[in-house]
Design a protein around this nucleic acid. Sequence first.
DNA 1: CCTACCGATCGGTAGG
DNA 2: CCTACCGATCGGTAGG
Lengths: 206, 206
Amino acid sequence: MGSEELSKGERTWLAIEEAAYELFLGQGYSATSMRQIADRAGIALGGIYNHFKSKDEIFESIIINKHPYKKLLPGIMAAEGEDIEEFTRNAMRLIVEEMGDNPYYVNLMLIEIVEFKGKHGAKLLDELTPKVFPLFEKLVKTRKNFRVTNPALLLRAFFGLILSYFLTEMIIRDSVVSSLMPKNAAEAYMDIFLHGVLKEKDGKNV
Amino acid sequence: MGSEELSKGERTWLAIEEAAYELFLGQGYSATSMRQIADRAGIALGGIYNHFKSKDEIFESIIINKHPYKKLLPGIMAAEGEDIEEFTRNAMRLIVEEMGDNPYYVNLMLIEIVEFKGKHGAKLLDELTPKVFPLFEKLVKTRKNFRVTNPALLLRAFFGLILSYFLTEMIIRDSVVSSLMPKNAAEAYMDIFLHGVLKEKDGKNV
DNA sequence: CCTACCGATCGGTAGG
DNA sequence: CCTACCGATCGGTAGG
């Protein structure tokens, strides 16, 4: 898996980060102890502090290296250049594929919001916006068939759509409600974003 | 305020619940100690246990009494009976009014998802669905101008819309991005839900 | 409802 | 990288 190319120190570093990542996703930051992290990483408690100064530093490292946008952004940027409707559908498809089986990756964002009051989140957002904003600005400008002309609002709505899709997925997962959902829920969800829940009612279609 | 009608025990009970509520919203469940709750409630640590058996029981009480849906559901149900587009707009307006100044009420849901793995959430959902589902079922059936014919999907999308609106509100709150947002972001957000981001492109309108 | 306490566990460190 | 330890704090309880 390429881990043969890493030094022992690097492998231990990664093992600690991965162990902490899994534990944080599963039970939150404060509820996770350094001892749990050490156990899962396969080393003694004290060994962690050869690689990280504190528990907080582990979380910061995880936010930087494992934030969902790391996985999602490349897909979103790569989906550009085609038809707008297809861009959105492709982006959504890529995101669903990338997030894959479990929507629990978003827990990292939720932990950041609740337990850190968005401390790192605001910084991330201000770093990311200049990268993504132009894309949405261009979308709005180059195509005439947008109802939404404010690129910031479009970006927010798109991001909110992704977020709400995975959140509602998590919420209904263990519930009977999920059986009522259509198979292609992701596509249908995206369709609402693109066309809304209502047909045009001014008699100009259907 | 009506608190004169309450016994001393009831007032203490409420003070503990309210103190814990505020602390949980601000820093999460695990990061909040019973001593912090006692201090904020104005009693000694041991005094809490005259009213609650455990920390967990306090959280359960809060989930039942202070869950956002308690505030939101009446508004949503009351918004029924009018035109569908207006129903949605009215519901959104009521919700924004009710949630009011701070979107941090949703933190309760986030804590429940991350720190309790949706333990209470699934139960709540199964209780609530029978109440709300018929409303959306009726909406879909009685009006012809719906693109979305699956009531479960419509419910999920509506709930996701509300959730994502307040989440993105929290996220962008301390960021420069919020200055790029239109004043009536809530209405615009709702508008996307109703009509999508795209104009109909089959030439049948505008 | 408070005081005083329990054992357990916390994040972190020294010293090897 | 481990062993053994630090002071602090945790949730909870007994006894009044």
